[in-house]
Write a protein that binds this DNA or RNA. Structure first.
Lengths: 159, 159
DNA sequence: GCAATCCTGGACGTCTAATATCCAGGATCA
DNA sequence: TGATCCTGGATATTAGACGTCCAGGATTGC
């Protein structure tokens, strides 16, 4: 899995603590974790295309969450960065084997494929069951000052 | 996920249908699906190092299963090929952020890390719950002639 | 013993995707 | 009008996947 997923989740989580309507430029998001600005920007654009973030150009512009943290699952974020493909992609090697049936879609019929898909679905269900709001709540329970500190940092009090 | 996983599972499944004590050379395994012999050999070696296959040199040598199909899970095979690392590897970007605590192992403590790990564990549990024997049984139920045909092919009746 | 078979492991080459940078263009705001 | 900031494409770099080759050693059969 690409490292952009880690960046994306943490970035979205930070946006969770902003005042409503407030936006943060990509460069400032990158400075928070000392990430390469241009490259993080690419990931944020992918999140925007996926409808997870909203972007606004110009001064006081930047990125913000497109919907409530309760309505953004980890699965949404992972899919936005990694794309729609499954981790295990069936190359249908059965097609090259003896006793193959012309025209069969082994991606669906092959028993091995199905077994791997079952595992993938369990993974996706677990990710889909956890939202940004859940993560945020856990963080705040452990460290109640996180929201204020994060908001303050983005509000320009340099650190 | 690397394509070697697909090769490895199908190859192990085929070994499931051999007479007890019978071994198949890597080249013959590769011929079955028209895979690159030298490269499949690498994957088979990995399976042998992981204790899933046993290898014997010399004429009449080759690879065979090291234990019963009931005792080989898909997780075993995937781990042998892909290695021990988790798909999501936490790079601990929190360490570069403001308010970081020296000496904290974010791989364990970071809430995002924990959420991703929970999904990974669901995936692994699903894979660990499916054995080669399960797969074999499903295949045989659908296609009762599979065992005989596979065994015959490897027994040298060319196709 | 000898030759054929076959695994072992490392060196090597190739190619794709992830990583990363840069810039021209357009939108927005003060 | 100038400063800010997103957009998207072109480009470069690098790590890992994919794949080949070969020298060495073990085993079998004659």
């Amino acid at each position: 899995m690409s490292e952009g997923v880690e960046w994306a989740i943490h970035s979205c989580l930070n946006l969770t603590w902003l005042e409503p309507g407030e936006a943060v430029p990509a460069a400032r998001m990158a400075a928070f974790y000392e990430l390469p600005p241009a490259y993080l920007n690419k990931q944020l654009q992918a999140l925007a295309r996926a409808g997870i973030l909203t972007s606004t150009p110009g001064p006081r512009g930047g990125f913000r969450l497109a919907r409530r943290p309760e309505d953004i699952s980890l699965m949404d974020v992972v899919a936005a960065i990694e794309g729609p493909d499954e981790a295990f992609r069936c190359e249908e090697i059965l097609r090259q084997g003896p006793g193959e049936h012309e025209g069969v879609d082994y991606r669906r019929r092959c028993v091995v494929s199905q077994a791997m898909r079952r595992a993938e679905m369990a993974w996706r269900a677990e990710l889909a069951g956890q939202t940004l709001a859940d993560i945020r709540a856990t963080v705040e329970r452990r460290n109640p000052s996180a929201p204020g500190e994060t908001r303050a940092w983005f509000a320009n009090l340099r650190t």
